[in-house]
Design a protein around this nucleic acid. Structure first.
Lengths: 329, 329
DNA sequence: TTGAAAGCGCTAACAG
DNA sequence: CTGTTAGCGCTTTCAA
């Protein structure tokens, strides 16, 4: 350490810099001043190595070019910054393989904990359970795995979708279609169930085409939506279970001159900042993304900081907000 | 290292794991197998400490909840992953102070290089020059500082804005207004200059209200836009120099029943995925965000990997694309 | 082909 | 209050 020009030991300097109570005030001042003059910045990796913690967390998610996830990231970053932690963002691009590699890397000591929203192609849970087994705190946000014994922050997926369906039913829609995003993510399943339950409770028939699974590439889902909206048995309402589907519904409706909301009412889960200025403005189920990020980070830090908390499994459910706009008028 | 159950030295194991030529093939196999069985994952920080590089880069930007920046991040991540590097995302939230702290931290050995798009409130360049002085490669993307002697990847801001103005002029607009986003970021200045030049070249008068500076909070810019659109001398066309301003133009137009494009034509710099389904669809100047991320990362890695390249200053300019839609019909 | 030893920069434990 | 020593987990000579 260069700050030994003061004829002090590295230990003293180290303590002075971290404002230890056992160092003379005068000495501290001298050290701090010289450190600034020399632009000395401690190496965090050396510190990590010694202290066996990294003061950084991993945030593993499918994609950041998504209004929901990007807001979550903001929330996480905010809490992390307050806590003096770094947040390492890992993008899976919905690829299970990549996700597994990332979680593997998370066990290297690089991070003290991980926040994750799983990819759509994630089938096995082994990579996640391995992290947990390594005693590295892990918390799910939004796309959680039910079968993992860890904490999670999700929204009221069932209820909000139930309410969305009821809203459409109250508008006299007869053929409501639910666009499912993935067959193996629990929150999407819950959304689907909320939809089904509302349909049943209101004695609406569920046909084979009431639920359309739109997995895969944008062009694949586009094709499915196109087929759906051009069929003679076209639905009169759509609930999109995720943002990436709703833009395509709008495009297909536009290209086929299907009028929203007159011929087709639309509701979507989304945090698009432009929902209110779309043509027509879109009725949304808006998740409290930023807050979810904050809460997930909080849960994680409480486990990182207090190992005793690691066994307690908290399932936090935040309410989404339905904002009615022209697409369901 | 636990893999000493094989009666091998740590040195041998280390070499075997990194597939060194000086290790017996048989030994390598044994080591690798046991490593897998024991789920051994090397500690990257120990490695960093010893090798004096971190295999990670910093990405410093204002906000990730922005369609442009989030795409850039995707591009950067993709290249970083190919190169086996980690990308640490730092968010400044347009705060100069925070940006300075972050760049300070970048000199700790935590990262091998930094990619940055400066915040709107960044006035001094000292924090950036300090990074450069520490011989840590730094590359700007989009919001670059002209006065720093380093490489950058930007778009043809002057030209694209010139073209946007010409487009509006060709549509017979008489009172075109440019919404400026920041007074001290060079790309915004260039956009403004492109606008001014087009106006001059076409003999359009530039009045005091031709350029409106919309700095500060969303509500502040909203107020400015509201005042602008309600004035008796209301413009008949607007060029928004950044995405966050255009959504507000749309809202204000809507709340005041100003018809776009009939009474007001609008063009904006933006990468919003919903530009085509807005009401009305928006004419955009779209920057090649993903590609900018890729290129900036490439420039950075070439400097990280070859110190000889560090002195060469490359200014890469990528073309934006003007997509004409209903807002300028 | 393998191993012993040194050391990256820091902090914790313990003496002084 | 300050310093000495040891060692975090790895890689790199250099020697065997």
């Amino acid at each position: 350490m260069l700050a030994k020009e003061l004829n002090l030991s590295v230990a003293t300097v180290s303590k002075a810099l971290r404002d230890s109570y056992e160092i003379n005030v005068k000495t501290k001042e001298k050290v701090i001043e010289l450190a600034r003059k020399l632009n000395y910045i401690p190496n965090p990796y050396a510190s990590s190595l010694r202290r066996k913690n990294s003061k950084t967390i991993a945030v593993v998610l499918p994609d950041v070019a998504d209004s929901f996830f990007s807001l979550v990231v903001n929330g996480i970053h905010t809490v992390a910054a307050e806590k003096g932690y770094h947040a390492l963002i890992y993008l899976t691009f919905e690829d299970f393989q990549k996700e597994a590699e990332i979680l593997r890397d998370c066990q290297s000591g690089r991070v003290d904990g991980v926040l994750i929203s799983v990819s759509e192609t994630t089938t096995s849970l082994q990579h996640i359970n391995q992290v947990i087994a390594s005693d590295i705190p892990l918390v799910f946000f939004d796309r959680a795995c039910e079968d993992c014994k860890v904490s999670q922050v999700i929204t009221d997926d069932f209820d909000s979708c139930y309410a969305a369906a009821e809203l459409l039913i109250s508008k006299k829609c007869k053929k409501i279609c639910f666009l499912a995003a993935s067959s193996n993510i629990s929150i999407f399943k819950k959304r689907e169930e909320g939809f089904k339950k509302a349909m049943q409770d209101h004695k609406h028939r569920l046909s084979a085409s009431s639920i359309q699974l739109c997995e895969g590439s944008p062009s694949e889902s586009m094709a499915i939506i196109r087929r759906l909206l051009k069929s003679k048995n076209r639905p009169d309402a759509i609930i999109a279970s995720t943002e990436r589907l709703v833009t395509e519904v709008y495009r297909v409706a536009q290209e086929n001159k299907i009028q929203i909301p007159k011929q087709l009412k639309v509701i979507s889960f989304t945090n698009l900042p432009t929902a209110d200025i779309l043509s027509p403005s879109l009725t949304t189920i808006t998740q409290p993304a930023y807050e979810m990020g904050r809460q997930a980070a909080r849960l994680l830090f409480s486990r990182i900081e207090k190992p005793a908390n690691r066994n307690i499994i908290e399932k936090m459910m935040l309410p989404s907000l339905i904002e009615q706009r022209a697409s369901t008028a």
